[in-house]
């Protein structure tokens, strides 16, 4: 276990292993999202109350899941960077932030579009919606704070601290639908326990959620490797890699 953590410190190791893993994650993401899209759009039965507008769930739930998961991973990377001084963790955190911000935006947007036919309004200051909006602002804050520093180290520390403090918003988002029950429905998708919807609707959603997670992993691997090249460009192993022509493209 300790040897594995030591390896995780090494950008060289990550660059090599990430290069081997990323085609599989890209392929899995493409396959699962394609399958889930066709299944969810054309084959899942229409909802007896909402009709076909419920099909928005297949993009709304995966993006909302990722929006929160990415923030938690970013905070975990921030912790690893602050406690163990793992630079690779900060590189990963820096490429995750814009992905998470975009996911949060799309989750809010698809929720707003869904709200028009279902709730009769695109926005309401419901606890779930408001806490997701705060999450979007936190993402923007993390991105902006990193750029506000002249030194890489200073920006990395500030962004890590904000991510670690901001992660308190995640349980608030998760339990908001139970604590302040207003308009947004409670969780309808759980891995454990009784599903709140029939199998024919639930299965494509599971495929989409797994596909989106694979997409996030693939994207993070690719982007972190680019970030390694940017930051470690002067290192000997990078030069050896480029001179050998084996740069993983």
């Amino acid at each position: 276990m300790w040897a594995f953590i030591q390896k995780l410190r090494s950008p060289k190791w990550f660059y090599a292993i990430g290069g081997k893993c990323q085609p599989w994650f890209w392929a899995a993401a493409l396959g699962l999202i394609a399958l889930g899209s066709v299944w969810g759009l054309a084959f899942a039965p229409a909802d007896y109350q909402q009709g076909n507008s419920f099909r928005i769930i297949y993009v709304h739930v995966p993006t909302a899941f990722l929006a929160q998961s990415i923030f938690v991973s970013m905070a975990a990377c921030g912790l690893a960077f602050m406690v163990w001084k793992i630079k690779l963790a900060d590189m990963a955190a820096s490429v995750m932030a814009p992905i998470g911000a975009l996911m949060t935006f799309v989750a809010l947007y698809s929720g707003a579009v869904w709200g028009v036919p279902t709730w009769g309004t695109w926005w309401i200051w419901d606890a779930r919606l408001t806490s997701m909006l705060i999450l979007l602002f936190l993402y923007i804050g993390v991105i902006a704070l990193r750029r506000a520093f002249a030194s890489l180290e200073g920006g990395a520390r500030a962004a890590s601290v904000l991510a670690m403090v901001g992660v308190i918003n995640i349980p608030i988002i998760k339990y908001s639908v139970d604590w302040w029950y207003t308009l947004h429905q409670p969780a309808s998708f759980t891995i454990t326990g009784r599903a709140a919807m029939p199998m024919a609707m639930w299965a494509p959603l599971l495929v989409m959620v797994v596909g989106f997670y694979c997409f996030f992993i693939a994207l993070t691997l690719t982007r972190t490797r680019s970030e390694i090249l940017r930051r470690e460009g002067g290192k000997r192993w990078v030069r050896e890699l480029v001179e050998e022509g084996a740069d993983g493209l």
Partner: peptide, 19 residues
């Protein structure tokens, strides 16, 4: 989409475009 075309395609379109 049973009369919900604009909502379904607006949400799906933007999501797939983002990916």
């Amino acid at each position: 989409m049973g009369g919900h075309a604009r909502y379904v395609w607006a949400a799906w379109g933007v999501t797939l475009l983002m990916l």
